[in-house]
């Protein structure tokens, strides 16, 4: 059910823009935050709040790949298979993860707890091969380290993003995206060695 508190957040989102319709993408993220997918009920709620037709909302909801039309489960797993990551090993990572989950591209795992997706370039090619868990970075993975992450998640153990906070779940990330903020900005390290590669050389005095 789309709760009243979600409705209130939808109105808050609409109020952020000169034209309320601009809030549609965030509102659809909010639907996923509440319902784990974009439901018919969620589409109806967006349409009602924005005073547009359900067909108009559906046209948008089916255009963007982050909106899912059946339940994602607890965690969304992305493996980058664009040329750079794929060829540097992402293809092998994807195969192992798919096997572990018993899932095919853009579909649920055998147990329904995970969703697997071959994702396009994640703007992290310096950290190839790249995986994402609930869209948080898991950089420089190998087939084994990727499966280890999934095993831990499946066992309910704590897993940290390599450049970000502790993994929560898909719906929590969708809430972050909807509201375009959360209270995790101060948690976890976002800057790693690869981001400092040039700076280190410049500061070491190694340049003549």
């Amino acid at each position: 059910m789309i709760t009243e508190s979600t409705r209130i957040k939808m109105r808050e989102l609409a109020g952020r823009y000169p034209n309320p319709r601009s809030a549609l993408l965030p509102m659809l993220h909010l639907v996923q935050a509440e319902q784990d997918e974009v439901t018919t009920e969620g589409i109806a709620a967006c349409a009602q709040e924005l005073e547009i037709t359900q067909a108009e909302v559906t046209a948008v909801a089916t255009f963007y790949t982050m909106y899912k039309h059946s339940p994602v489960g607890k965690h969304h797993i992305g493996v980058c298979i664009n040329t750079l990551c794929g060829l540097l090993g992402g293809d092998a990572v994807y195969d192992r993860v798919a096997e572990r989950l018993g899932a095919t591209h853009n579909g649920p795992s055998a147990d329904g707890n995970f969703w697997l997706e071959r994702i396009e370039c994640q703007a992290a090619c310096t950290h190839a091969p790249v995986m994402t868990v609930d869209w948080e970075f898991m950089d420089d993975v190998t087939p084994q380290s990727a499966v280890d992450v999934i095993d831990k998640l499946a066992a309910g153990e704590e897993v940290w993003s390599t450049r970000g906070p502790m993994i929560r779940d898909f719906q929590a990330t969708e809430h972050t995206l909807a509201m375009a903020e959360d209270d995790l900005a101060t948690i976890g390290n976002c800057v790693d060695e690869k981001m400092l590669a040039g700076l280190k050389i410049a500061k070491s005095g190694a340049q003549q």
């Binding site: 703007a123 903020e181 900005a185």
Partner: peptide, 23 residues
Amino acid sequence: NHAFIYIRGEVPAAIRKVAFAVK
């Protein structure tokens, strides 16, 4: 008098940092 920062949705790690800076 109004600026928008349109960040791709797949990267919450960037969104939360920019949102924090705005706050």
